[in-house]
Design a protein around this nucleic acid. Structure first.
Lengths: 323, 323
DNA sequence: TCAAAAGTGTTATCCTTACACCCATGT
DNA sequence: ACATGGGTGTAAGGATAACACTTTTGA
């Protein structure tokens, strides 16, 4: 009668390494195929809430101190990840985004345990526009998506949802519409549906991948989807909450702050406007010190001015268009 | 080893009745105490995804056609709703927001089954500013919140989160900060923590309610919290997605549209600016007909122009400040 | 003719965007 | 002196917010 289910908690744990956004990966059960996100069960007998449970096993297994933690989405994912030997007992999984800072010695400790941080753009390479529009979009992704859309449009021609070709146009910023970095999840899902990802094949949706070259590293289960959700959410959150600072050292230069923001958004931002924004929002204060580690003129050091949280209701980095 | 858990799906199903936002309520298990949100189990054997499961039992039990459905939040809520006879077996519950249209005959059918729609402001009366600032805020809620904050501030004085008095200031728009209709959830949670709600007492957090008069109808379990989440989410969503139209009849006057938007936001909006907004966004088109049902000059009828979905990436009603 | 609601035209202000130039240090 | 990155001032344009008045019906 009452259906019994097990809950899995999966975390996309983000830290900056050399001003690049990295996520913690562990070897997947099918280790040859793909990485996995760290995950653990939720046991309501030992943890009062799921977030406490998550913090518990993460800090226990990785010795990382988590800062901001945020629930992303819950899915009961039968139909996905049906490996023949279905060793995964949990049917419902809850995805989380977590932010942390990481020290070099922690990195080596993790490495010995087989885990480690990896640049999130290795999993989602089309999301990185910092060096301009990624060539793989026009070379591989968009042509194949267009081919798929032509078929899918017909199949869904009377659905009341948006037709695939339009979803693609909006998600990928085609004809007139512009690229919106927050739509990372939409892009992932379209590529999954169109058979452009290793996961599309693994889940039995396609016989073979519809594109020859790499479309980023795959992950176990839905983990890459969770990562795409985390990327979308973090990119959106930055604009109205000062969460970036949980990824920064206590003292930093404005350029370093800008680089971190750019690396998360996957695009460059306008230097002066960025600075004015940070200044007007009173998000930081000068420490008084400066550093000449950067080459060129020494840069003033700043720290996060935590009091903004108590002053303004939504202090974020509402960065504008391309820089 | 593997902890077995049951999943409950709870839906805040919203429909407009006489231009007021109403939610579907059913008699709670503890029927004398409070209403409940409709809820049902998730059985992965019969439903591929949780959303399909939800649509399934809702349409089966209520004969309502759901439009937009959106997951809100998942909580593993031990510690809440510990009724002495804990007859509720599920420990994890997933909250959903769903929009629907309802006909008079459906209302009577539901009434016979003991269910029915109720104005959501009966549950959250402090959220309705359409007739000005609700008196209960200054009469009851804010004084008691201030008293609680004085104590709670001390207890949490070294927490790195915001102190309660500041969370109150931001959530309720005190000194300089202005009321933000999207913070309905924050407000609910603060009132719950401060012992202002019947739920605070029922859950054993307080011996008695800290305020004599009514602070809105209580609900079972976390259901009023889910409702507050739904209100927040719908208010936010309206601004960047044209979901209002799922709550409107196919043909409507611009004033009716404005009233629906106002009733959801719980505040009035500026008439001309609202109209210009709707017009500029090309969200509607005239049907050609007009109605004189409204008293006064007949009003032109409009319908939703569904093509905007295919044209603009984020077509919503970015309504501005107070009208 | 008057009440009640529909419907329109215009201006001030601020925020976003874009532009180009000067400054301080290490080599 | 020159390369490198740090740091600033200012103006154009568009979106937002605020304003008050005219029009068409039913009673």
């Amino acid at each position: 009668m009452a259906q019994q289910i097990e809950i899995g908690l999966n975390a996309a744990i983000v830290a900056m390494i050399d001003n690049n956004p990295c996520i913690l990966r562990v070897p997947g059960p099918d280790a040859l195929f793909a990485d996995a996100l760290p995950s653990g069960p939720f046991d309501p007998r030992t943890h009062r809430t799921m977030e406490i449970g998550l913090r518990g096993w993460v800090e226990e297994q990785t010795a990382l101190q988590l800062g901001h933690v945020e629930q992303l989405y819950t899915f009961g994912d039968r139909g996905r990840h049906q490996s023949p030997d279905d060793s995964s007992p949990h049917i419902v999984s809850v995805g989380y985004l977590a932010l942390t800072r990481v020290q070099p010695e922690q990195i080596s400790a993790l490495k010995m345990a087989g885990a480690g941080f990896r640049d999130w753009y290795e999993f989602l390479p089309w999301e990185d526009w910092r060096k301009g529009r990624p060539a793989m979009l026009d070379d591989e992704i968009l042509p194949e998506l267009a081919r798929w859309a032509a078929i899918a449009d017909k199949r869904e021609h009377q659905s009341k949802d948006l037709r695939p070709s339009n979803r693609i146009r909006i998600a990928f910023g085609l004809d007139g519409t512009q690229w919106d970095e927050e739509r990372a999840l939409d892009r992932y899902e379209l590529m999954y549906s169109a058979g452009l990802l290793d996961e599309s094949v693994r889940d039995g949706r396609y016989k073979e991948k519809n594109v020859k070259s790499s479309t980023g590293r795959p992950m176990d289960h839905d983990h890459r989807r969770i990562l795409a959700t985390a990327v979308s959410r973090l990119r959106a959150k930055l604009k109205y909450r000062p969460v970036v600072f949980e990824l920064m050292p206590t003292d930093f230069t404005l350029t370093a702050l800008q680089q971190v923001v750019e690396s998360i958004f996957g695009r460059s931002v306008h230097k002066q406007n960025f600075r004015r924004l940070v200044e007007n929002a009173k998000l930081v204060e000068p420490t008084g010190a400066s550093t000449s580690q950067t080459g060129g003129r020494p840069a003033a050091l700043f720290r996060f001015r935590g009091e903004v949280l108590e002053e303004r209701p939504a202090p974020g980095l509402r960065v504008g268009r391309l820089g």
